[in-house]
Simulated scan of single mutants.
Amino acid sequence: MAVVRKVLVIGGGFSGMAAAIQMRKAGIDVDLVEIDPNWRPEGAGITVNGPTLRALETIGVFGEFARRGFTSSGVDLFTPTGHKIGEIPTPKVAGSDVPGGGGIMRPELGRILADATRASDVAVRVGCTYTAIEERGDQVTVAFTDGPTGTYDLVVAADGVHSKTRERFFPEVKPPQYIGQGVWRAVLPRPSDIERPRMWLGGAVKVGVNPVSPTHLYMFVTEPRPGKLNVDAKTWPQLVASMIEPFSDPVLAALRPHLLAPEAAIDYRPLANLLVPAPWNRGRVILIGDTVAATTPHLASGAGIGIESGIVLAEELAKAATLQDAFDGFHARRWERCRMVIENSERLCRIEMENGDKAEHARIMRESVMALTQPI
């Protein structure tokens, strides 16, 4: 029997939903509150790696991902002129036969996990968050914005990179800091010959595409920018089109006009990361996902490490003799893996911004990919 009977999850993002679904499998009663009344993840496409697909398989939604997204193995590398210079293999992950990676629209992945959360009999309340959390002995009392008060054995905070729960329980931790690189994303029609991710490397700007469905792909463009973006959003399509103009590969040239269409839904994100020193709990309140371990996208692992943390927390709660044992087991399995992803992703970002050592970049990618294939 699990060491807790009733748990509150704050935040209906990927890590919170993963934790809720897996805790229900362990027989734990779960309430989940999500502040967004529409429970709608923002963003364009998202790239995931094989380990993330393995995590989705563990939860039970890999089949839906494969049906509604796109899976493949390997990444092709090109020069700006279209000369293929190599590929990044995506090795088989331990304990699973899932493909090496995939892509999907971020809102679509959110819907898949939300459907699975509700199907798991999690008690979901949207448009709701908490106003107070107070621990009393072996219970936590929580007051909510929609009126009632609840009592729980454990609170799991998964309220994102701008978490107010982190601000309260970890006041010494500074908010995430802009890293000096931004990423543009756009949704475009997929040419039939693009069947797996491609990246064009050359200088400080990197361009990539990844299929997200049988009909569409998403493009990502990373660029160094000394300060955060302060440009009228109406100019974004032309700005992104001009960024890829120096890339003369005919494949990119054919995609470029589609950037100017409203359907491209161009999105910009300034990149930042965050790694809170462990332990990630204060008493019976534990933080997971982007609240304590937020990464840049250079290893396609941001969503993955959060989903994995939800799975591992549920596993440790199900098998531990005491709550402290569960916390200890969770941190032992999650700290080093999350640290590696965040710090290696940041180093890859720095190398790209500085047009640095390509051999070091390749080595970090290779070592990180191999480490992530190992069991969680």
Rank of each mutant, 00 (worst) to 15 (best):
L8P: 13
V9T: 02
F14A: 11
M17W: 08
A18T: 06
M23R: 06
K25I: 06
V30M: 00
L32G: 02
I35A: 13
G45T: 00
I46M: 04
L53K: 08
R54F: 07
A55Q: 06
T58D: 06
V61Y: 02
A66T: 10
T71L: 04
S72R: 09
V75M: 13
P80S: 00
T90W: 08
K92G: 07
S96G: 11
V98Y: 05
P99F: 01
L113T: 00
D115E: 13
A116F: 05
A119E: 12
D121Q: 13
A123P: 11
V124W: 02
R125S: 14
R125D: 09
T129S: 10
Y130K: 04
T131R: 09
T141G: 08
T141H: 14
P148L: 05
G150A: 05
V156F: 07
D159E: 07
T165V: 15
E167R: 13
F169I: 10
P171L: 00
K174H: 15
K174Y: 10
Y178A: 04
D193S: 12
R196G: 01
G203N: 04
A204V: 12
N210R: 12
V212I: 15
V212S: 05
S213E: 00
H216R: 15
H216A: 13
M219Y: 05
F220T: 11
T222M: 01
T222F: 04
E223H: 13
K228V: 14
L229S: 12
N230P: 12
D232T: 08
A233H: 13
W236M: 06
P237L: 00
Q238W: 11
Q238Y: 10
L239I: 12
V240T: 04
M243K: 13
P246W: 01
S248Q: 11
P250M: 01
V251T: 14
A254E: 11
R256M: 09
A261W: 10
A265I: 10
I266D: 03
P270Y: 04
P270S: 08
N273H: 15
N273S: 14
N273M: 09
V276C: 07
P279L: 00
N281A: 06
R282G: 03
G289K: 02
G289P: 11
D290W: 00
T295F: 09
H298A: 08
L299M: 10
A303G: 15
G310E: 01
I311Q: 05
L313R: 06
L313D: 02
A314C: 04
E316R: 14
K319I: 14
T322S: 11
L323Y: 05
F330P: 08
E336Q: 12
M340E: 14
S345R: 02
R347W: 07
R347N: 06
L348M: 09
M365Y: 14
S368Y: 03
T373Y: 03
